[in-house]
């Protein structure tokens, strides 16, 4: 079944990916210190965090290169959690400003 696995990244790719992750982390910390960005800081942070999440899962955990079954199994949890917990928080009025 290993024939479905495509060429895996090389160590050089891994170091490059780590560098990208480091840069995004730096950007995340920086935006919290820039007062001018206060109104958009939440969406910015969520986007950057999601990007880091996707990079680690896709490249370090090889999800991008592997059989779709792994991705689909993991996606079920990733999709279910925000819907369920978002609903819970909505019933408390947390996500609509309190």
């Amino acid at each position: 079944m290993s024939d479905t696995a495509h060429a895996h990244p090389t160590p050089r790719d891994y170091w490059l990916i780590a560098l990208i992750l480091a840069v995004i982390t730096g950007a995340e910390v920086s935006v919290t210190y820039i007062d001018a960005l206060d109104s958009v800081v939440a969406p910015l942070l969520i986007t950057m965090s999601a990007a880091k999440f996707a990079i680690v899962v896709g490249y370090f955990m090889h999800l991008k290169y592997e059989q779709r079954i792994y991705r689909n199994l993991f996606l079920m949890g990733i999709i279910a959690a925000p819907i369920l917990f978002g609903t819970v928080l909505l019933t408390f009025g947390v996500l609509i400003g309190d």
Binding site: L73, A81, F85, L89
Partner: peptide
């Protein structure tokens, strides 16, 4: 084994989701 691990991690998503939800509340 990889199927089992990914299945387990799917469950862990909900586990940490509950804890993070509690924190957000």
């Amino acid at each position: 084994r990889k199927v089992a691990m990914w299945v387990f991690l799917g469950s862990e998503v909900l586990f940490f989701g509950s804890l993070i939800t509690t924190f957000l509340l």
